[in-house]
Amino acid sequence: MLETPETPKQPRFNEDFGGRRLAFRSLVEARSAALLPGTPNPLSARIAQDVGFEALYLTGAGLTNTNLGLPDLGLITANDVIDMTARISDVCTLPLIVDMDTGFGNALNAYHTVRQLERAGASAIQIEDQIFPKKCGHFAGKAVVPVEEMLGKLKACLDARRDPNTSIIARTDSRAVEGFEAALDRAYKMSEVGADIVFVEAPRSIEEIRAIGGLPKPQLINLVVGGQTPMLGLEELRDAGFSLVLYANAALQASIKAIQDVLTSLHTHGSLAEVEGQLATFVERQRLVGKPEIDTLSERYRGA
């Protein structure tokens, strides 16, 4: 009797999103400065899971840069983010935090977007208080909506959840616009409304970082190479009380540099001989995209 190949343990669309959300809440509650890598597409998400991270972050900036080849200036749509959330959730089993920028409109738009992102597999959804269209958090010339408008949008996001374990992250960019004390005040108000996690973007000193760490709700900090926030070590951030440490575009910046180096060498030398050691092997590339599991499926369904 022929043996039947085992069914591959592949993540399938809409598989145990509730379990992922509970895992993310546990990660946040530990307040252990868990690292979040930015993953703008399914391949980078699979690599991050393979490396051993516990959760992922779908970055709006990375999605814009990768999919459109344009800067982070509010040029992506809600559908772009929803589609990529589903694509990543389909091939990774880790909790996925999704950056939905300003919610793509008013409070009703934010409500509708949360519903769709939750169905697509988001474990946590982040909304910010910039005007629409927004700008990268480390760009100059940002502007924020009145705090009352932001609180209304935040309430809409909280009400929109069908799963109470879906976390809502409230981000303020007011540090660059109104100063640090005003940003801290907004963060307190967002905590009082019910945000699960607060995110004060682009603090500019160690003292500011420590003050954010004292907020009553769990906090996220975003570290950007070349940005405005001091690049503190993980132990310092853990001691300051942060739950999550985001490196939103480290993988993207690394891939840009690698592509530049390899293609420059190819253009200069006419071959890859000088940089072959910088390339993933053919076998490794197929492993990362799950070809062995697909081969097993193909064998299973080939017929008698």
Rank of each mutant, 00 (worst) to 15 (best):
L2G: 12
P8L: 01
R12A: 09
R12N: 10
F13N: 10
G18E: 07
F24M: 02
V28C: 07
R31W: 04
L36Y: 12
P37L: 04
P40M: 01
N41E: 15
L43Q: 14
I47V: 15
D50I: 08
A55P: 07
A55M: 04
Y57A: 06
T59H: 10
G62P: 08
T64K: 00
T64M: 01
G69Q: 15
L70Q: 12
D72S: 12
L73I: 09
T77C: 00
A78M: 04
A78N: 04
N79R: 03
I88R: 02
D90R: 12
V91S: 10
V91H: 09
V91W: 10
C92G: 08
L94R: 15
V98R: 00
D99Q: 06
M100T: 06
G103Y: 01
F104S: 03
N106Y: 00
N106S: 02
V114L: 00
Q116S: 10
L117E: 12
E118N: 10
A120M: 12
G121F: 15
A124Y: 06
Q126M: 14
E128R: 05
E128L: 05
D129Q: 11
D129C: 11
F132H: 11
P133L: 05
C136A: 08
C136R: 03
G137W: 01
P146I: 04
E148K: 12
E148Q: 13
E149S: 08
K155I: 09
A160E: 10
A160I: 08
D163Q: 11
P164Y: 13
N165E: 01
S167N: 13
S167W: 13
I169L: 08
A176E: 04
A176F: 01
E178T: 03
L184W: 13
L184Y: 14
A187I: 03
E192F: 06
V193A: 15
G194R: 14
A195K: 14
P203M: 05
S205V: 01
E207I: 00
I209F: 00
R210S: 02
G214Q: 09
L215K: 10
L215W: 06
P218G: 02
L220T: 09
L220A: 10
V224T: 14
G226E: 09
E235C: 07
G241R: 04
F242S: 02
S243Q: 14
V245I: 12
A248E: 02
N249F: 05
L252W: 06
A254F: 14
V262E: 10
L263Y: 13
L263Q: 10
H269A: 11
L272N: 11
L272V: 08
E274M: 14
Q278G: 04
A280I: 06
A280H: 06
R285Q: 08
R285Y: 07
P292G: 00
I294P: 06
D295A: 02
L297N: 03
L297Q: 05
Y301T: 09
R302H: 09
G303C: 04
G303T: 04
